[in-house]
Nucleic acid binder design. Structure first.
Lengths: 341, 341
DNA sequence: TTTTAGCAAACTTGATGTTTGACTGCTAAC
DNA sequence: GTTAGCAGTCAAACATCAAGTTTGCTAAAA
């Protein structure tokens, strides 16, 4: 199916898609005459065939052509250019990502912001599914006689704290016990252990301080559940896009950003250390049918440590987005390794 | 100026404003006949006078009337109803705010979300200016040989942590020294002490571990500066408002939300434990001239602990918003006192 | 066989005009 | 002070028209 197209058809399809990406207007046969170096009639003939295969569409009988979802897919798979990154942009990315930060997540946020700035689309990042990250250390710090802070470190460099309040005073002995108990039972185990096994253990084997321990477990579980953080950047960029003029689309987009679940759902389907492109309906969400999402997961020593994505109109500059993503992904990985997070 | 209006004029103005708030359409003399129990001609005469004073406007020569900014102001000052809160909504608020949470800021976020849900406008909250909050305690926790966590507690119940990375190993002795130093110099002093005085002291009096201390101060300062958190809720509600149909307004709004500084600037001007209303140009920001902002500061033992605001079109249901705010403000205060944050 | 020129048909876009209906302001009567 | 009545104003909806694109098709040219 991909090999079906002869060279000229490829060039025409590419020209249509890139023209449409640039202008947001249907591309006519006449527009391509200079570029293709043949008459408009010839181009029309070719266009008719491209339309038959389903790569391009007309908005009405006598309009120019617009890429179809299938057309974009072919473009992304076969025709994409990945040299759309200028020296200046590369410098910017390098500069940004080499900023010293203290937490992995901060670096990810910087990457997201940079991505959005360069592409002018909305960028979003979500944390990883931390359930199978391994606990390296747990600390409890008494912040007041009734306030305890729990700090959990995982092997992926992710740190989480939770503040827990009690109705009665705690003493240092209790805190030490707590530390001892949790360390013994949890260090070296995945975070999800917190859910089932631990609770069972405490209920059966432990006798003292059950209430305190239960509360601590409860809070830590809450913390883990909530910890798939979402960070958005560049939402106002959409306002400048022509498709935003259609009120429906604009509304859709606002709703999409608000019901972040939709987007995070898509981001979560991404696998492996590679760039994924979801075009329109490929997102499998009705609300996203006018949008495309490009994502990549970043790994640290084979562990998923989060996903970064771009969301924009289906008429998205895929070449640019993918070029930028590739470069950022590479640089981010370098930094991760360098930084020993 | 406020007493100038006779009773019927007040009723007419109120009817116009409430009608316009409801329908987003100019209100005609005919619309008010039933309500005012006199002929449309009489109402027209009254309207002409209200227009002369500048409380209402026409969109064109033969259109109905629309409230002016001055009209809204009069309405907010004199005509507002504060019984627009249903039993059900009160219950919802109570329910929500009585959720047990561990941090003050979480409760504020819940209040913000609830506010947005009930009013259907976008709600925003910003943290207080923490500079003059007094430090109660500082703890340092070693999370790894090169990773230190600093925890700062203030008298307003706000807790902040920062993770600091070093290029060399730290031992427990150094951490203890650090704790001793910071506790001695800072506990009981306002957070802003961190900025000037402390640095001087270290540069002149201390000899050991200067680099470590400098880094810690640096990071903590960063933390304090960044700590005016902004939390937004209900941005998609705007999409359903008729004014959103005007692309310019929609764009303005997106930009406003993105350049949060604009809104936080306005929120920051709010003073005392009271509700403030900024209508259109009263915000003194050109970008906000089509919007209104209603805010209140909440205090805990006379300390500013943040501001909650609503942002919506000038055609905002002020009565509803203010009713809800009053109630939430009251309940929030109750909870603050009860919870001993 | 492939490409091109030429042309009718389809359709958008923008300008122009018309009708309809909703208001208002004014005047004169109540 | 209030109201009825009426002319004047304007927006919104709709129809009409001309101009400009763009296509598909056909037939001729390469």
């Amino acid at each position: 199916m991909s090999g079906e197209l002869d060279n000229r058809k490829k060039r025409i399809l590419q020209a249509i898609i890139e023209g449409y990406i640039e202008s947001a207007e249907p591309v006519s046969s006449g527009d391509l005459v200079k570029e293709l170096d043949c008459s408009s009639a010839t181009i029309r003939n070719e266009m008719a065939e491209l339309e038959k295969i389903g790569f391009i569409e007309k908005t009405h009988t006598s309009s120019g052509r617009v890429p179809s979802q299938k057309g974009y897919r072919y473009y992304v798979d076969e025709l994409i250019r990945d040299d759309k990154l200028s020296k200046k942009e590369m410098e910017l990315i390098k500069d940004r990502l080499e900023t010293k930060v203290n937490e992995l997540e901060d670096l990810t946020k910087i990457a997201t912001t940079t991505l959005s700035e360069i592409t002018h689309y909305t960028a979003i990042t979500i944390g990883p599914d931390v359930n199978n990250h391994v606990i390296i250390d747990i600390k409890f710090v008494l912040l007041g006689s009734r306030v305890l802070m729990a700090v959990i470190l995982t092997d992926s460099g992710i740190i989480r704290e939770s503040i827990i309040k009690f109705d009665e005073d705690l003493n240092q002995q209790q805190v030490d016990d707590l530390t001892y108990l949790f360390k013994n039972k949890l260090v070296g185990k995945p975070l999800e252990t917190m859910n089932g096994p631990l609770e069972d253990f405490i209920m059966t084997e432990m006798k003292t301080g059950i209430e305190i321990i239960k509360k601590v477990i409860e809070e830590i579980n809450k913390l883990i559940k909530e910890s798939q953080q979402v960070y958005l950047n560049g939402t106002n960029n959409v306002a400048d896009m022509p498709e935003f003029k259609k009120v429906d689309v604009a509304k859709d987009f606002l709703n999409v950003l608000n019901a972040k679940d939709l987007v995070t759902d898509v981001l979560n389907t991404g696998v492996a250390d590679d760039i994924q492109v979801y075009i329109g309906e490929e997102t499998e969400k009705d609300e996203l049918k006018n949008f495309s999402i490009v994502t990549f997961n970043h790994l640290l020593e084979d562990k998923d440590i989060g996903t970064i994505g771009i969301i924009g109109p289906t008429r998205m500059d895929y070449s640019k987005v993918i070029s930028v993503m590739k470069y950022i992904s590479k640089k981010l990985n370098d930094e991760f390794k360098k930084g020993k997070y």
